[in-house]
Amino acid sequence: MSLIQIHDLTRRYVMGTETVHALRGVSLSIERGEYIAIMGPSGSGKSTLMNLLGCLDSPSSGYYELNGVNVAHMDDNELAEIRNREIGFVFQSFNLLPRSDSLHNVELPLIYAGMPSEERREKAIQTLTHVGLAERMHHKPNELSGGQRQRVAVARALVNNPSIVLADEPTGNLDSRTGEEILGLFETLSRKGNTIIVVTHEEDVAQHARRIIRIRDGLIAADEVNPHPRAAMKFAQEQSALTLNG
């Protein structure tokens, strides 16, 4: 059974007197362990699709089954629970809590999951160590470099063992070298069996995925397997492999 099954999903926004059709009927299915890029120019509806896939928003019509559960008509609180359990977000602007240190930021999903404090501390330390930030546990976001911040965000996304890691332009605020590092991290995670969906408008970033879905005017324009996924630069791969094993 597919991890994600979407059928004829639409999303309309009413802006004043005008109705904007952001998604006009999208159907797709995603298997466990896939590494997917969703591409499209701005205004194409890719952000809307990401919000729906991430259960941040509810569709106007259509069917969405995530991990065997129909989430299309869930209310606010039920969706919050699904997000907490099933989805790890990585945002373009990191979206860490500025006043909390790395450890607390990574612990946050576990707090909301109701995990006892010792267990969640241990888990957060473990995950931060995996992304190579064992030394930066008690640094606040403004004491970290962009790449390090994004690693904290990745750790936060992973700490709950979600079904999907959903990354929205994860390299958008990073220089190309650190961007490669993060993509290398994703590759390693993918190889370990995580399902990763990257939303981007950069062809370079998308080429790392093994499947590329192109959105245009609220519809899927193309959905194809990437025959030759680009490997992250050698050094980045080595580094992330090192940290993930160490």
């Binding site: 919050a80 979206n95 809590l97």
Partner: peptide, 14 residues
């Protein structure tokens, strides 16, 4: 923004 982050990560209304 903070509220948005917390909600995305799984904070309920309550």
């Amino acid at each position: 923004k903070e509220i948005g982050i917390r909600k995305a990560i799984g904070a309920k209304r309550r």
